[in-house]
Amino acid sequence: MTTPTSAPTPVKPSYRPQRLLILGIVLLLAALGGGYLLGLGNQSTDDAYVDGNIVQVTAQVSGTVTVIGGDNTDHIDAHALLVTLNPVDAEIQYQRAQSNLARAVRQARTQYYQVQQLQAQVSQRQNDVRKAQDDVRRRSQLAASGAVSREEISHAEEVLKNALAGLDGTQHALAVRLAMVDNTTLRTHPDVLVAAANLRDAYIALHRTQIYSPVSGLITKRSVQVGQRINPGVALMSVVPIDQVWVNANFKESQIEDLRIGQPAVLRADAYGRKVVFHGTIVGLDAGTGSAFSLMPAQNATGNWIKVTQRVPVRIALRADEIAAHPLRLGLSMRVSVDTTDTRGQVLNTTSPAQPAYSTDVFENELKDANAMVEQVISANEDRGQVAQSLKP
């Protein structure tokens, strides 16, 4: 007897792989969505670097270097002596200029005295003319009675002619002298002004043989050497004010839509790691992309064109106390994150600065000290008496 064959049990399909795939897709979408939500109101970049002022120290006069007051990595204060040039030639010129000013003052005094002398001579000549005119008139009245001879009258007329000629010559001499001093004082005399200007020039040239630091900071890029002959305008070294640094963050052009002046930023320096956090504020966006101001801008109108995402420099100011606690150096890499939630600020600066951004007073007293020296020389050589302050014809 044959046993009947049982029918095979159907295999149920497995849905486990499909479920895992769906779960993975859901998790991926959730991660992407969360990342997108976290990215809202915030823009970040690691293409950011510390920037600052590199103040060049240059010579204003030529000379030979005799002293160097600091070297690379040294800290220097403003007004501190950095470089000294051989002052011998400048001192000789300065002494010569002093002597020339003293001589010009004394010569101007002589011209004023000569004018006064000629004015007195003119008065004397005028008296002589009046006396001669009176003599001629009296003798002419007595000539009718025969009391005075014709010869005596002729002699009186000759005396009058000589007196008139003497008056005319003296008046011309006075006019020549007045042309040199008319409507001037001793301090405004042309010769004195020229000599005073030369003395100021010589004094300033002597002062500039000593080169002072215009700002406080660290010395870098020193190229000058003792014994070197330098010319005006040559860069000797640079001084970097470490307390005046900022960050240039280069954001992609797709990131700048919500960037505004005044927005806060959080920064981290690779030099200090993630533990040290700097806080900053956007103070301005550049007028163009980095490539627009490069030495050789791209020529996109020629050849095959490939779109490259451009970056716009954004300047971020840092807090002074944080820079003092953790000093930064120029060129250090930074990671920047800007809170773009508040978009009420300006996109670009539209107002001019109310005061200079940077300045130095190291050259402020040059002319003041030179003027004081000029006044000293003039006072030592001017008239102790009452010289006429102004003379008119």
Rank of each mutant, 00 (worst) to 15 (best):
M1H: 02
M1Y: 04
T5M: 10
S6C: 05
T9H: 06
V11G: 10
P17E: 06
Q18L: 14
L23S: 12
L27K: 02
G35T: 00
G35I: 02
G41M: 09
S44E: 06
Y49D: 03
Y49Q: 10
D51Q: 12
G52F: 12
N53P: 12
I54T: 13
G70L: 06
G70T: 08
D71S: 06
D71N: 09
D77A: 05
L81V: 14
P87E: 00
A90H: 07
Y94N: 11
L101A: 06
A104H: 12
Q114H: 10
N127E: 07
Q133Y: 07
V136T: 04
R137T: 01
Q141R: 13
Q141K: 14
G146A: 01
A147Y: 14
S154P: 01
D168I: 03
T170G: 08
V176Y: 08
R177L: 11
L178T: 02
M180D: 15
T188Y: 06
D191G: 12
V192P: 15
V194Y: 07
A196L: 09
D201H: 06
Y203P: 13
P214Q: 01
T220N: 10
K221G: 12
R229A: 06
R229G: 04
M237F: 14
M237Q: 15
S238D: 15
N250T: 05
E253P: 02
R260N: 10
G262R: 09
G273C: 02
I282P: 15
D286C: 01
S291E: 11
A292G: 07
L295H: 01
L295P: 03
T302K: 10
N304T: 11
I316A: 10
I323K: 06
G331N: 00
V336R: 05
S337K: 15
D339W: 08
T340E: 03
T340K: 01
T341G: 11
T343P: 00
T350P: 14
Q355L: 11
P356L: 03
P356W: 07
K368N: 05
A370H: 02
S379N: 10
